[in-house]
Nucleic acid binder design. Structure first.
Length: 279
DNA sequence: CTCAGTACCTGGTTGC
DNA sequence: TGCAACCAGGTACTGA
């Protein structure tokens, strides 16, 4: 469930379900999920006996604040957390289980095993990869027009790639980049350093709006899958181009086109998002 | 340094 | 039906 609004929804749910619980033990069934410390046993040693104080988020990362440790986790494509009764049998794709002293468990489930977990001593998480390389969230006050436009002027990459770059702005993924570009009327293959200040402001505002609206709606649920607590986002009803190929553009009626930009499936209205200005 | 291509994984869908 | 190829909401690493 992985762009910023989905991660934010997970954060809120997990916070209610886990704050105050103490980790009695950790079971790891697929060690590659654990990136820091590299040895999964050392990871378990750090977490044992720690209680969950709070859950935070930066970009698409969840940050579990424990007594002396910060656990940073990324869901990548299909990672899900859920809290369950510890007596239930482990499903096939559950790779990490945090056993709580009250008999419940926080389980990490991930069909593709792409997700990551980093454990740091309290305070060090912000100084190290992966968090240190993140840009501001879209609605951060640090995401100013000056900052954004300056960054755009420094690169000849296309806008699709730039908006997916988490070091410039954190939290946008394939769905929200397509949606924001459509709302700003910009073509995904526009070269970043050709944007006017007005165009930069337009896409900056569209990014913020789309992300905030999606958070309000509980995120986007596609490919009909619920997260582990059975919740479902509603923002898919607001999507205007993502997954809408061959359907009529809501603005002009032209069929939405699906192409590939930078290796990612990309949805665009060829009329509302012209690549070249028509004369 | 930047950037495009590839690697990491599994499973659902598409097309012959 | 069978099966290969392609696709998926992401990012780290490689080498040009």
């Amino acid at each position: 469930m992985p762009e910023l609004p989905e991660v934010e929804t997970v954060r809120k749910t997990l916070k209610h379900l886990t704050v105050g619980k103490e980790i009695k033990d950790v079971s790891i069934f697929w060690g590659n999920i654990i990136k820091q410390p590299k040895d999964p046993n050392a990871f378990g040693d750090l977490l044992r006996g720690q209680s969950i104080k709070d859950i935070d988020r930066k970009g698409k990362f969840l940050i579990f604040h424990l007594d002396d440790i910060a656990l940073v986790s990324h869901l990548r494509m299909e990672g899900k957390f859920g809290v369950y009764d510890g007596t239930l049998e482990k499903p096939k794709h559950t790779h990490v289980i945090f056993h709580f002293t009250d008999g419940t468990e926080l389980r990490y489930n991930d069909v593709r095993k792409f997700g990551t977990m980093h454990a740091f001593k309290k305070g060090e998480e912000a100084l190290n990869k992966p968090l240190v390389q993140l840009g501001p969230d879209p609605f951060d006050e640090a995401f100013t027009l000056d900052y954004f436009h300056q960054r755009l002027l420094k690169t000849s990459r296309n806008m699709k790639a730039v908006l997916l770059d988490q070091s410039l702005v954190a939290g946008l993924g394939n769905i929200y980049v397509d949606e924001a570009l459509f709302r700003a009327g910009l073509h995904p293959e526009r070269t970043a350093n050709t944007l006017t200040r007005e165009e930069a402001e337009s896409i900056r505002e569209a990014s913020i709006t789309v992300i905030l609206e999606a958070i309000e709606q509980g995120g986007t649920t596609i490919r009909s899958y619920l997260n582990s607590q059975g919740e479902i986002g509603m923002f898919q009803q607001q999507l205007r181009v993502y997954g809408k190929q061959d359907m009529e553009c809501l603005n002009c009626g032209t069929p939405i086109v699906k192409t590939k930009v930078g290796g990612r499936g990309t949805h665009v209205c060829p009329v509302c998002q012209p690549l070249h200005v028509s004369e």
